[in-house]
Design a protein around this nucleic acid. Structure first.
Lengths: 416, 416
DNA sequence: CCGGGGACTGAATCAAAAC
DNA sequence: TGTTTTGATTCAGTCCCCG
């Protein structure tokens, strides 16, 4: 594990077991390390690649102090062609190791983000959003020659156009005070105690990203237990955020100094709180209720009439969980959704909210109300069982058998 | 002018005189039309090219109403390669007709903006900013499968890296309540009475841009009288904004219906207000004052002492407009700026704010105060002269000789 | 191309001084 | 000692223009 890199590079690349190295920072070039990982083994990739800033000379503030620039060798490329080749190479590996339902996030500025976005599209990633990180406190433009460069851009993309990716819609809506999360995020830059300093008090890394940004990324597009890979790990903000949110991670970093720093930083970082509080969506898909269950449980009886909101359309409940309309030759049979499409003429229909039962007082109640009633009953029964289980087993770790009580909240929690 | 397009295309392309066609909407393919324009003839290009949205099927809202999408043929491309070829073709022509100091603006969404940005860089445009148009009222994401796509991206680029482009810094700072204008702009989408409708009450163009966006673009990077070209003119918002701000324009549009609509819209649009109110920067560079003029006018006397803010450094005023420090062998002579650099040790120094005179009450006043005093006196003299001139010649048009009074405000107003 | 004039910064954090 | 004010420092930077 502490072999010198020249020797390691000369050896045939041994395969890496993702489960084994989860939680570690791997020292090495990200392309070489990713090559040692199997196909389709990670749920998400977060990448903060070099921006290729192409800075010319020194820049001074009006008070003559000098602006600390990114002068590291890792940000130097001969030209756009070299940058494009590098980008295609790491991105192709990232796509190979990504699960079919996985997504990738890449952050950049106008210096590189257009190369990055075009490369993603050329590799047949499917862009889902570009997200703007608006900085509350950007560096001003000192010479008054451009607009204050007050944002960076993240691209979020699925492995391909047909990917069934994860998006924790309701959790992010909650994070945004009940409104859909937008594609522009307002967050401060990384400074103060969060900003890592070296022994001389200088910043340890030129481009450390704020944890708040990574929290939001992970909350949006991963579930607890997911494996997240960061090929440009730096000081390990992705690892700290992953640890806090109960996600597993693999970090790859080329600079041994940063590897050591990130490793100790993550060791000292707080662990996940009770994973039940971290939710994938926090609002996972509710367990499915077959319409027929309403009949079986007696909430509806065979022959009961369902009507639409206007009362113009009307179907009768059947014993097989379908509904029928009309009689004789004009009779039609189908699911509540199919018959809703027929009645409404629209391209699709949620039968649960389209069809209603008439209450004794004559008012209409959507059959979704009956479904919610049934779900609540089922949940009550499961909670009782889960409480028994918790009493048996009092610690905080995830239950091994993915007990029913947690299933609703964490359907994709791996069984380790 | 009303030739049918197939015939026009078969004829040899006649050159177009930019001054002649300024203010017109040219019916035709933008690449073909730009080819007929001479090199380096326009000051700015604003382009809202097809976004290549790649929409699959129709999208419906939860209430089953259908979302009006961009379904026009002009937005259909076979693949990314076709879109890239198209983009390179029109952009190369745009660069050719752009003046060396000219800039280009291109607006797009994540569907196309990465192709656009990469093409700009490949053609050796030099990106100055990417600007985010944040929409106050974006269309929500109806399926809850992504973030609300709440922004579009504009790229602002100079013709090349060494270009001396125009940026009306102070005017935009003013627009932003005295703070530097940032790269994220919050503006409503185009709706209400501003949104053009056809006879059936449907929107006349799928992607009409708000005038406020174009006002800001033109105010930022053009001067009154500048010639602005829009190769994808649509319903002509660029023309309406240009007219209101006293800029000249050329519009190119392929769809004859849109050409007719834009032409009549612009004819009905309000004309520029008094051009003196439209400013290039509104705050053009102040006339230069030689330090020696302070001595010649008696505001300073030979031998007067100038000190820095702390009082630690001290120079004496000479008759030749230089200042000197020390005596004998250690004596140093130079401009106020050069001696400021010596005293401060910084890489540069504005002597006008570095050096101070001591007032009778003992407080320090920067010599910039004396300069402002002198400038005000000079301006008063010029205003008086200009008033005499205005009396002779009472209309509102720009004076032919670019009279001194207007020179400060509109140095680049063409005489045409 | 060189030399020189001179224009140009916002929010956050933290330390030190002032009250 | 507690509180407020002031000043210094810092942040992914493609950062001048004219003769």
């Amino acid at each position: 594990m502490s072999r010198r890199r020249p020797i390691a590079a000369a050896l045939p690349a041994e395969p890496l077991d993702p489960a084994q190295i989860a939680g570690q920072v791997i020292d090495g070039d990200c392309i070489a390390v990713m090559r040692r990982l199997p196909d389709a083994c990670v749920d998400m990739v977060f990448a903060d690649p070099p921006y290729n800033l192409q800075l010319a000379g020194p820049l001074h503030r009006p008070n003559n102090s000098r602006v600390a620039a990114v002068e590291d060798d890792w940000d130097k490329f001969a030209d756009f062609a070299a940058y494009d080749a590098f980008t295609h190479a790491w991105m192709a590996e990232a796509r190979r190791i990504l699960k079919p339902a996985g997504t990738i996030w890449v952050i950049g500025s106008y210096h590189n983000i257009f190369r990055v976005g075009a490369a993603l599209q050329d590799l047949e990633f499917w862009i889902l959003n570009d997200v703007i990180w608006r900085k509350t406190n950007p560096m001003p433009n000192f010479r008054g020659r451009r607009f204050t460069n007050a944002h960076e851009t993240l691209i979020w993309a699925a492995r391909d156009a047909r990917s069934r990716y994860r998006f924790n819609y309701k959790a992010l809506k909650q994070l945004n005070d009940g409104l859909q999360m937008r594609s522009d995020w307002l967050l401060p830059i990384c400074s103060g105690p969060e900003r890592l300093k070296d022994d001389d008090g200088r910043k340890a890394h030129a481009t450390q990203k704020p944890l708040a940004l990574l929290y939001r990324v992970l909350q949006a597009a991963s579930a607890p237990g997911d494996l997240v890979l960061d090929p440009f790990f730096g000081t390990g903000s992705t690892g700290v955020a992953a640890k806090a949110l109960g996600r597993r991670f693999i970090g790859i970093e080329r600079d041994p100094g940063h590897v050591a720093l990130a490793t100790s930083r993550i060791a000292a970082a707080p662990d996940a709180a009770d994973p039940r509080l971290l939710g994938g969506d926090g609002f996972e898909r509710e367990p499915r209720i077959a319409f027929g269950l309403l009949v079986e449980t007696g909430l509806l009886a065979v022959g009961d009439a369902l009507v639409d909101r206007t009362g113009r359309h009307r179907v009768r409940v059947r014993a097989d969980g379908l509904v029928e309309a009309g009689r004789g030759r004009s009779q039609a049979i189908g699911s509540i959704h199919q018959m809703g499409v027929k009645a409404s003429g629209g391209p699709s229909c949620n039968g649960w909210v389209f069809w209603h039962v008439r209450r004794p007082d004559g008012t209409l109640e959507p059959i979704d109300g009956l479904r919610q009633h049934l779900r609540a009953e089922i949940a009550r029964g499961r909670d009782a069982a889960a409480d028994d289980h918790d009493d048996d087993d009092g610690d905080d770790r995830m239950v091994d058998e993915a007990g029913d009580a947690d299933l609703t909240t964490y359907p994709e929690q791996p069984v380790s």
